[in-house]
């Protein structure tokens, strides 16, 4: 189902307008001191959790903004950050 994603600039829009940008893993690590294991963890590994996760989206067919939302992966709907607190 094309669920809705709330773009901070454009408001709720159909999910197909967006590109998924992965789970939020924080800023880029320093490449010089990065072990292969830590590198892999940052680049490839994911929690793939059942439930709410914080994640990145890009409004590809819209304003071109990267932003984060919280989404419940079991229901595949955006949830407010309050719901996330309740979930954890």
């Amino acid at each position: 189902m094309a669920f809705l994603i709330t773009c901070p600039l454009c408001g709720p829009r159909d999910a197909y307008e967006f590109r998924f940008g992965g789970e939020d893993k924080g800023p880029r690590p320093d490449p010089e001191t990065l072990s292969p294991e830590a590198w892999c963890d940052y680049v490839h590994m994911a929690d793939s959790r059942f439930g709410v996760q914080k994640e990145w989206w890009y409004h590809r067919r819209g304003c071109g903004t990267w932003f984060t939302i919280y989404r419940d992966t079991v229901k595949n709907i955006e949830v407010s950050s309050n719901d996330r607190e309740a979930d954890q």
């Binding site: 189902m1 094309a2 159909d14 999910a15 197909y16 590109r19 998924f20 994911a46 793939s48 059942f50 989404r71 992966t73 079991v74 229901k75 595949n76």
Partner: peptide, 13 residues
């Protein structure tokens, strides 16, 4: 559909 999830939803698109 390029969004990770655990549903079996289909889409109109």
């Amino acid at each position: 559909d390029p969004w990770p999830n655990y549903t079996n939803q289909s889409t109109a698109h």
